[in-house]
Design a protein around this nucleic acid. Sequence first.
DNA 1: AAAAAAC
Length: 662
Amino acid sequence: MSNGSYNNGSLDQQFAGMGINENRSNNRGPPSRYVPPHMRNSAGGNDNGGASTGWSDWNNGSGGNDRPRNGGYQRGGGWNSSYSDYGRGGGQNRSNFYERGSYGGGGGGGYRNNYRQHDNDRGYQRRDDSHGYWKDGVHHVGNRNPRTEKDLFGSAEDVDRQHTGINFEKYDDIPVEASGDGCPEPVTTFTNPPLDNHLISNIELARYAIPTPVQKYSIPIVGAGRDLMACAQTGSGKTGGFLFPVLSELFLKGPLPVADDPHAGYRGRKAHPTVLILAPTRELVSQIFEEAKKFAYRSWVRPAVVYGGADIGAQLRQIDRGCDLLVATPGRLVDLIERARISLANIQYLVLDEADRMLDMGFEPQIRRIVEKEDMTSVQDRVTLMFSATFPRDIQYLARDFLKDYIFLSVGRVGSTSENITQKVEYVEDADKRSVLLDILHSTEVSGLTLVFVETKRMADALSDFLLCNNFPATAIHGDRTQRERERALDSFRTGRTPIMVATAVAARGLDIANVSHVISYDLPTDIDDYVHRIGRTGRAGNTGLATAFFNRNNKNIVNDFVDILKEANQEVPGFLESIARENRPGGRGGRGGYGGRGRGGGGFGGRDFRKYNNGNDYSYSRGGDNFNGGGYNNYPPLGGGRPSYAPRDVPMQYQNKTSWF
DNA sequence: AAAAAAC
């Protein structure tokens, strides 16, 4: 094993090795809020009226409207691509404006391609002929580029990139439940058909051997143009679950012609992505983008990413270089739509990752705006995919607004269930938490990274400072840090430079960090789903992991759900937890706050399709948990009590002189 | 009550 510290291609490389105390020199002051006046000036309304609807029915015949067909897209037969070709100068150095030309664009309108500056800008940009293109209905795959391949795919020895090949023999044991009308049969291999050959070659480069369960189902479901709500633990391959089938379809079908937009204006370019992927945090969006780059390699598809807190100018330039598959956080996307730099009129695939979060109270208005109030394709004319590890029933209900006749998929975790995560619960009073945390860090056999979750940003800073003062190499990530600080923290954690990271909810979902061996819920969240997502940061790809939670009476609002979760995963339920749960659950399990009643549970994996358990009632569930406090006032053994306050101790050898973990 | 997400 080499000392390969891997940097995810981020900007932070130059900061590597500045020592474990990177956290302490940060200016914690609030970021500057100054907004230049010209930035406030949005380009005004939506100017995409009218002209963009000339194409139709990319999906499997969603039926006979009489709009002009542009030659009609036929699945399998390859659609008429004469509008969507873009000329690649045969070795010529072409001038640098993108073509608005209507390639054989018959009659009115004229169709131009999405931006294709890549192949025109060789004159001043780094030469890279690994980009593919689409011409005359044929996918021309770009040349291989060893350097790009190393960047994208790493090498088989990279310790912190091992996603594949681990325990894949266990895939067959994983329970999968699909419901919905006419669910297609799952595939069992990455083969053609139904997958495109070029996609398969990229999958091979990424060293993925066989599809994970969620992929086995999502590939034919998306291939059939069906909508999907997939309840699958992260770590079960859900990113591939949407990227593989979507990219495969794109490779097979080529670009969609873009209706010429007479209102686009001299101001310039407006990107018309075909795929939009939305996710709730910047880091997650960035991670999805990195995956998208792998599987779009050498193809005609140009992935792009936009999120807040980063230079918007660079993002705009990136979009100008091509934007067929866009990964975005909601806020920045809305900004770019307002600036008339992105149109959603061409979206054929909409993906909501961490969909239950995207549709919860904080995000729903923004999502609704993007999906319903801008120019996005209607639900009938696009394929919509939602993925999450948890899907509360009320969120499923909400989600129906964005889906049509969807398949519901419920998939367990690689390694049969989440049993490969050992969950421990300790009774710890708030005042004792620091001391207990130190005890754990001193005593636990350390072989990987430790992620400590707290509920507030202030606590994240305070706790990481505390750990640093006690000579533990720690960093912190939360939403009040600058994006650069966040990326540095994550990178320094990922590479093991600071093998302890204190985090708020920002890091609870979706992040794929190899070698996280211990997740500590220093504070428990108020929503048990958040807990489920947190512990999913460990035990990934079939590895085992440990999750420790500090529980005290302040957390009794989730005690019922918590006990249900533990039992579901065949975990030990400590006596004090049972007692508090009993006290909190008069009348036994039927309580409406029970986890089983939240559209999850069932076979001990995944979630439940609320359509099947609804008794014909459309919507009867309300989210508030039960508030029966019972009034009981028993004394439970204060497990954390009586501990000595933290005395100076040497940190364990493993944490000393830490420069790199691997 | 907090966190996240645009400037």
